[in-house]
Amino acid sequence: MPEISISKTASAGSVESSDCLVTVTPADSIEIDYSGANKKIFEKRTEAMTRAILAEYSVTAGRVHIQDQGAIEITLRARIETAVERALEARLP
């Protein structure tokens, strides 16, 4: 398994209600920053989901900032995946 670090900044989503804005930036290790009105009730869920997505892409270092405007799970997942893919685009064949 290759170990991939996020080396450029990329984002996906928006700050419209029911959406989320995910921004991925370089960092030395995995850092997850989840903010929004649902922080208290969905923080653990979101962190676990984000770590799982990063693992799918073999990402071992990078900061993921999620501004949650009330997105449902499938939206969060799609935005996180897209942001990670955009950050990794340069590496893809």
Partner: peptide, 10 residues
């Protein structure tokens, strides 16, 4: 299943 299950208020 769509939204996820929230944690109860602390």
């Amino acid at each position: 299943r769509l939204t996820g299950k929230p944690e109860p208020p602390d």
